[in-house]
C-alpha cells in the first residue's frame, strides 16, 4: 500500500463523526475606513499619501529617488520614470532594483494589507527584491476586513497573490524592530481618488 493510501485509510479509520462547516459573515461598519487604514499602516511603518492621481504620485516619488537609480513598474502611467517589467525573463535580473511601483487590487483597513495578484507585478519577485516599494490603491477599493477582501477576490484563478502590509521587517534580535529584513526597506502607499 502506498503512503497515500495508508494515510487516507488511517484518517478514515480515526476521524470523528462529521461536524458541520460554519459559514459566518461578521457584520462590519463602513465609515472611517481611510482613517483606519492610515492609522494601521503608519503603525506598522508604512507611509501613506492620499493623492488625486498618478501625476501627484510621480512628483512625490521623484523627490525621493534619483533618475540614475533603477526604477521599475508594470504600469503604463509610469513609463516616463520607470522601465517596464518583462514577464518570463530571469527574475535574478531584478536584483539591483531600487524602487518598484505597482498597483494593488484591494486594501484592507483593519490591517492595512494590500492584495497584489501576480498579474499586477508581472514577476512574482518584484515586490520583494526591490529596495523600496510603492503601491497604488483606489480609494473605493478599501474594505473593512479580510472577510470582505476575500469575497471580492472570490474565485479568481490566480497563480500567485500576496497581501502586503508594511515594509519587510524583523524583531528576531531581542525583539528590537528593524525595518528592511529581506524585502523592501520602505513601503509607500498611495490612496488614489
Amino acid at each position: 500500500m502506498s503512503s497515500r493510501e495508508k494515510i487516507l485509510a488511517a484518517v478514515r479509520a480515526n476521524k470523528p463523526d462529521l461536524q458541520p462547516l460554519p459559514d459566518v459573515i461578521i457584520p462590519v461598519r463602513e465609515e472611517g475606513l481611510i482613517e483606519e487604514y492610515r492609522r494601521v499602516a503608519e503603525g506598522i511603518g508604512a507611509k501613506v499619501y492620499e493623492v488625486g492621481g498618478t501625476a501627484e504620485v510621480k512628483e512625490l516619488l521623484a523627490a525621493s529617488f534619483e533618475p540614475s537609480q533603477r526604477i521599475v513598474s508594470p504600469l503604463e502611467d509610469f513609463a516616463d520614470m520607470a522601465e517596464g517589467i518583462e514577464a518570463g525573463i530571469d527574475p535574478h535580473s531584478f536584483a539591483d532594483v531600487e524602487l518598484a511601483i505597482v498597483r494593488a487590487e484591494i486594501g484592507v483597513s483593519e490591517n492595512s494589507a494590500l492584495w497584489v495578484p501576480e498579474g499586477n507585478v508581472s514577476q512574482r519577485v518584484i515586490p520583494f527584491i526591490c529596495q523600496h516599494l510603492a503601491i497604488l490603491i483606489n480609494r473605493e477599493r478599501i474594505v473593512p476586513t479580510l472577510q470582505q477582501a476575500y469575497s471580492l477576490i472570490g474565485e479568481i484563478n490566480y497563480g500567485y497573490g500576496v497581501f502586503i502590509a508594511g515594509p519587510s521587517k524583523t524583531a528576531d534580535i531581542e525583539q528590537s524592530l528593524v525595518l528592511g529584513a529581506h524585502g523592501p526597506r520602505s513601503l509607500r502607499v498611495f490612496i488614489v481618488g
Binding site: E110, N111, E118, R124, G159, Y160, G161, V162, A165, S168
Partner: peptide
Amino acid sequence: PITTYSSHFRKPR
C-alpha cells in the same frame, strides 16, 4: 494586525 506578507501560492511560475 497581520504578517507583512501573506503569500498565496497556487501554481508554479
